[in-house]
Design a protein around this nucleic acid. Structure first.
Length: 697
DNA sequence: GCAAGGTC
């Protein structure tokens, strides 16, 4: 076989698009070898375009000693299948790549032109293609459009970007050294001292994320609520009642509030001013993954990880564009009109799509963020082959309507503020109305703005004051993070990436560091942060990421080297791990205690409804191997209370008493089914309750 | 198996 040009891409979709763009006839040949797809294109020459599947190489411990020891500083790069279980497909994938590289006489790296993409291509060329990294050319493109890809191919960069590659390798190695060594230190201290085995972990992203949550817990715990008062005046106009709020709300003391109310009581109000303002709401910007995850949480309550897997499915069905993007831009090359035309074939979107198509010019309201490899998320225009259901249906609809909305005109809201003077004190009434619907019409029902109607007030008019309302309130502690706000916080500090943030939050749940949707930190989570703050404060600080980024930038500029940074990392970790070992007893005790408390908490349902002094606990019978709820006083011989529990599914304490009989309840969840609440009282008339009825969040 | 990162 004659030689050909070998092009490596980061993922199958990119290989498909590149091959088609390069092929003279615009239609490359798709071949499959051992289940792995690749493409052949002709463009004066034969081009074989082969995808990889993200990282097929990773950092791992070198040498034979693999046991549970730390610190470990000898690392190497190895194929993923040697490191990870269930990675057989990656072994075959590499075989296919190697085979296709053998006959090639020219090599081109066409992976995403970013940090990770650069290492992905480099490792394939170096390890799977036989040291071709030094002769390979680099194809640099920023969108997967035909014109851009052809341009990129015709103006190849002569070399790989070795400085970028070196910084990427450093990022992987530093993360591995910190993450693995500190995770082992935590796990082993707990095991050796307390005898508990639990996988504990931390890292450059997990650390600060957990610390945000712990800091919030500390703020909440240390919060001192202070009372305050608010005043409202009941106004009557045209036989309708309105509540005008006092301008100087909140009022600090009860005395002051009562004094103000007293002066106003029984007096007439005079309209002091009527101000009208127009509020312009620009259309939203296109979705990047983070924004879509936030919006899906607000609109449907979907956790970021669900949105992430759902968008991946929609992408694989070709219904939406590539979802793991940080871009808020929609370049014209995606073909706005074509997409709208295709969507208009769908009954649900027909009217809105046609309305946009009637516009003289389509211009999306783009956001600031861009991504070197992908545009924002948009519907491709393809209609689903079978009807979408559940999360797929909802998220697809959200993506389509957002796509429509970014082309819409600004919405205009009219805000009317009426100031009413009652014996020298000012009160305001606010009316709100949407006067120009603009893009809101396209984004319905995902952005609801309520109208607050107000009758016509005129300056100098007299109004009746029916009464005054005093309300005693207390300041609230800062709210717990939700999956949405936590994700935003991570983005704000630039830790993790759009593809990993949701998963890292999930890891914190899996480790038992956090629980509940309004995130609470467990004793274990607090103990982990406590330990790390003492022994390795850098790994729980967002500064760490910033420093690493600086060092990587220095490498790119040739001012630093990977060797020097790794050497410094090792030096620091030697000190940290020595300290941890010296203090292993204290560390292990603290973590074990927290783990033990967590285990007890997971089993404790509530106070015993029979003896009232013990606690009901989930117990596994040694005789029958069945579980039941039993009183802790059983072991003292003072209470024999025991109640049956379902034998299947996961049982957790609900932390709520039954709304109907006040007995303790548990939360039961069967795999793939909704959770429900079970009251333990055998005589309760509402033994089985829905989550909402029971008042559980 | 522990990280974080890419991909299906």
């Amino acid at each position: 076989m004659e030689g050909y040009t070998f092009v490596i891409t980061e993922k199958p979709d990119a290989a498909y698009r590149i091959a088609n763009a390069l092929d003279d006839k615009g239609k490359a040949e798709r071949l499959v070898e051992k289940g792995i797809p690749y493409f052949i294109a002709y463009r004066k020459e034969k081009i074989v375009v082969v995808p990889t599947l993200g990282h097929l190489y990773t950092v791992t411990q070198s040498g034979k000693e693999q046991g549970s020891r730390y610190p470990v500083f000898n690392i190497k790069w190895a194929p993923l299948y040697q490191v990870k279980r269930k990675a057989d497909r990656s072994r075959i994938w590499l075989q296919v790549i190697s085979n296709l590289a053998r006959e090639a006489n020219r090599f081109i790296d066409a992976c995403d032109y970013d940090l990770e993409g650069s290492i992905i291509g480099y490792c394939i060329l170096k390890y799977a293609c036989g040291e071709k990294q030094s002769v390979a050319k680099r194809m640099k493109y920023s969108t997967l459009t035909k014109e851009e890809l052809q341009r990129a191919y015709d103006s190849l960069l002569p070399n790989l970007n070795f400085a970028l590659i070196e910084s990427g390798l450093t990022r992987h190695e530093v993360d591995w050294l910190y993450g693995v060594n500190l995770s082992r230190a935590l796990t082993l201290a707990t095991k050796r001292i307390g005898g508990y085995y639990a996988t504990l972990s931390t890292g450059r992203v997990q650390g600060p994320t957990l610390k945000f949550l712990v800091e919030r817990e500390r703020d909440i715990a240390g919060f001192v609520p202070t009372p305050y008062w608010t005043i409202k005046a009941q106004i009557t106009k045209e036989e309708k009642q309105f509540e005008a709020t006092y301008k100087r709300n909140p009022v600090k003391t009860k005395e002051e509030a009562e004094k103000i109310a007293e002066t106003c009581r029984g007096k007439k109000g005079i309209v002091e001013s009527v101000e009208e303002k127009k509020l312009i709401l620009p259309p939203p910007v296109p979705f990047d993954l983070g924004e879509l995850q936030s919006e899906a949480y607000s609109s449907f309550g979907y956790l970021p990880i669900l949105t992430s897997t759902t968008t991946q499915q929609l992408y694989l069905e070709a219904l939406i564009s590539y979802p793991r993007t940080g871009s808020q831009k929609l370049p014209p090359q995606i073909g706005y009109e074509d997409i709208l035309k295709k969507l208009s074939a769908w009954h649900e979107y027909n009217r809105l799509a046609r309305e946009l198509l009637a516009e003289p010019k389509l211009k999306p309201n783009e956001g600031k963020k861009s991504d070197p490899a992908h545009p924002a998320i948009y519907p491709t225009g393809k209609l689903p082959e079978k009807a979408l259901v559940g999360a797929g249906k909802n998220i697809f609809d959200l993506v389509v309507r957002r796509f429509f909305a970014v082309f819409g005109s600004p919405a205009i809201r009219q805000i009317i503020r009426v100031t009413i003077n009652i014996d020298g004190e000012s009160f305001t009434l606010t009316g709100k109305k949407t006067v120009e619907e603009g893009w809101l019409r396209f984004y319905n029902p995902y952005r609801k703005l309520e109208d607050v109607p107000l009758p016509l007030f005129q300056k100098g008019q007299e109004v009746e004051v029916e009464g005054l309302i005093l309300e005693n309130k207390v300041t609230q502690p800062p709210p717990r993070y939700s999956p949405k706000t936590l994700l935003q916080k991570m983005e704000e500090h630039n830790i993790g990436t759009k593809a990993t943030r949701a998963g890292i939050i999930q890891t914190l749940y899996d480790r038992g560091y956090i629980r509940d949707e309004k995130v609470m930190v467990s004793e274990l989570g607090v103990a982990v942060i406590d330990t790390l703050e003492k022994f390795c404060p850098s790994v729980v600080s967002v500064e760490f990421t910033r420093q690493l980024e600086e060092q990587m930038e220095a490498i790119r500029q040739g001012k630093e080297t990977k060797e020097r940074i790794i050497a410094r990392t090792i030096e620091n970790l030697k000190e940290v791990t020595t300290n941890l070992k010296v203090n292993e007893k204290a560390v292990g005790e603290q973590l074990s205690r927290a783990l033990q408390m967590a285990k007890i908490r997971q089993k404790t349902i509530g106070s015993c409804p029979i003896c009232h002094s013990g606690k009901l606990s989930i117990i596994q019978s040694k005789k029958t191997n069945k579980r039941f709820a039993g009183c802790t006083n059983y072991f003292k011989g003072t209470c024999k209370a025991a109640f049956p529990l379902p034998q299947r599914g996961i049982i957790e304490p609900s932390e709520r008493v039954c709304y109907s009989c006040k007995w303790p309840t548990v939360q039961v969840s069967l795999r793939g089914k909704k959770r429900w609440i079970l009251c333990l009282n055998p005589a309760c008339l509402n033994k089985i309750q829905k989550i909402k009825e029971a008042g559980v969040k």
